[in-house]
Simulated scan of single mutants.
Amino acid sequence: MESATDSGPPLVFNSSDNVTVVDSSTSALNVSTSFALALKCLDFFNFYYLAVIIIFGVVGNTLNFLVFTRTHLKLRSSSYYLAALALADLGFLLTLLVVWLNHVGVDLFNRQGFCQALVYTSSVCSCLSVWLTVAFTIERLIAVQYPLQRPYMCTVRRAKIIISVLSFTTLSGHIYSLFTAGITDGPEGKSICDLLPAYYRFMHVVNLLDTILTLVIPFILIVVMNTLIAKNLIVFSRTFNRKKSRSNNSSAQHIQWPAPKQSC
């Protein structure tokens, strides 16, 4: 006697009690075909989308760096934060360019030496970009909250020191990337740049700390400081409008009630 599992394709009963035969092999084939088509579309989009981001990003950040360091804007402390931020973003885009070159047959990323250097550079640039944004936001908050103290607190020398400290801390804090990344065996026997299996547990802890230090804490700081900046600007705007309204009212009263003429 034939078992239920060997009785052929599954049967599906609709509301009118008609029997519909569903061929599981045909359904699986349709799903795999749709998945392959989606992957092709994503690859096509990824190829051109990344190319556009890299081209415009490299050109834009290069121009930003030159403007903030080669013009009169270099006299402002905030320009140094923006120049360093442009340089960090430029470094990350260049590492992204090397990865993108795999699409055109230039495989540098999956080579020993290049793999570790690119992983380290991308980690440093992304982390440094976040904390430079935090430092720039702090300076904006000082300028709005304490405008009279700003010339003494936000100096070019102090900006250079902060940028140097952030750079040194980030460079030294990501040295582990040079040891945890390497060439491993990927699918179809290809050598790929990936996390070495011996450091899986270590990187689990590192990724948790990295998420806290480069996402959670900076996000909270930026949101709080931007909220304080917006609050101060609103208060300043209301105070300015109130004073302007009083000035207009006093001017109108002066025009409506002129001084009486003296008789001879």
Rank of each mutant, 00 (worst) to 15 (best):
I217K: 05
R140Y: 08
T184M: 11
M203N: 13
R242D: 14
G8K: 12
S25K: 14
K231C: 11
D185R: 05
V19D: 03
N61P: 05
I222K: 10
V144G: 05
S126I: 06
A230V: 07
K74E: 08
L39W: 05
G189P: 01
V99D: 14
Y200I: 04
W131H: 14
A230Y: 12
L87D: 00
S78K: 05
M203V: 02
Y49P: 00
T121N: 03
I163G: 01
R238G: 01
A4M: 01
A51W: 10
H204G: 09
N232S: 13
I161W: 11
T5S: 13
S25I: 03
Q116S: 04
L215G: 04
A38V: 01
S16W: 07
N226M: 14
Q145S: 15
C193Q: 00
A259N: 11
F219P: 02
L128N: 10
L132Y: 04
L195R: 01
S167A: 15
L29H: 07
N110H: 15
D17F: 09
K244P: 00
R158E: 10
V134H: 06
I175M: 13
R157P: 01
P147M: 01
S245T: 14
Y49G: 06
F47Y: 10
V98Y: 03
P197L: 04
I234R: 12
I212T: 04
R140W: 07
R238W: 05
V144T: 13
P147E: 14
R140T: 06
L108K: 00
F240N: 14
A259D: 13
S129M: 09
Y176H: 08
G173W: 05
R111Q: 14
V106A: 13
M153V: 12
M153Q: 07
N232Y: 14
F109L: 04
L215A: 12
F45L: 10
V156C: 07
G113S: 07
T26A: 11
G173C: 02
V130T: 15
T26N: 02
I54K: 02
S123A: 08
D107L: 07
L196A: 03
Y49S: 08
S250L: 13
G186A: 08
